[in-house]
Simulated scan of single mutants.
Amino acid sequence: MQLTIDVKKDGSACVLTVRGEVDVYTSPLLKSHLAEAIDEGCLDIVVDLDGVGFIDSSGLGALVSGLRRVKERSGSLRLVCTKDSILKVFRITGLDKVFPIMSSVEEAAEF
């Protein structure tokens, strides 16, 4: 399945809406979108994963890379995810303790 990423910017805040499967083939696209957003001044990033049907370790790596990059600039990265299958991956890997995971973009924007 193809990966699409829509980026909405509002000053230093950005929402990346991700749809599709994030795997070894598509994770470089996610990583590059995150890096580009940060390089363009986004320091308050929300990644909406509700449109993601599958994520593997390379996708998790892309998110961790984005988190590391934005924290170097004193920014933040929060996730939106309500799908049990995706949340399970974060729980199993312990990344649910690393990323704030919210149930909506609105909730993440207020955090």
Rank of each mutant, 00 (worst) to 15 (best):
Q2C: 07
L3Y: 06
L3S: 05
S12N: 15
A13I: 00
C14F: 03
V15I: 12
V15H: 02
V15D: 04
L16E: 04
G20D: 11
E21V: 11
V22C: 06
D23K: 13
D23M: 12
V24C: 14
S27V: 09
K31S: 14
S32V: 13
S32A: 14
A35Y: 12
E36K: 09
E36D: 08
E36M: 12
A37F: 10
I38F: 10
I38G: 04
D39W: 09
E40Y: 14
E40H: 15
G41M: 11
C42E: 07
L43S: 10
L43Q: 15
I45F: 08
V47N: 03
V52L: 05
V52M: 03
F54I: 12
I55N: 13
D56H: 12
D56A: 14
L60P: 07
L60Y: 04
A62S: 13
A62G: 08
G66W: 03
G66V: 04
G66K: 01
L67M: 04
R68V: 15
R69D: 06
S76F: 09
V80I: 03
C81L: 03
T82A: 01
K83A: 10
D84E: 14
D84A: 08
D84P: 15
I86Q: 01
I86K: 00
I86V: 05
K88V: 08
V89C: 04
V89I: 14
R91C: 04
I92S: 04
T93I: 02
G94T: 00
L95R: 01
L95A: 07
L95C: 10
L95H: 02
D96M: 04
V98Y: 02
F99E: 04
M102F: 09
S104T: 06
E107G: 14
A108Q: 07
E110I: 15
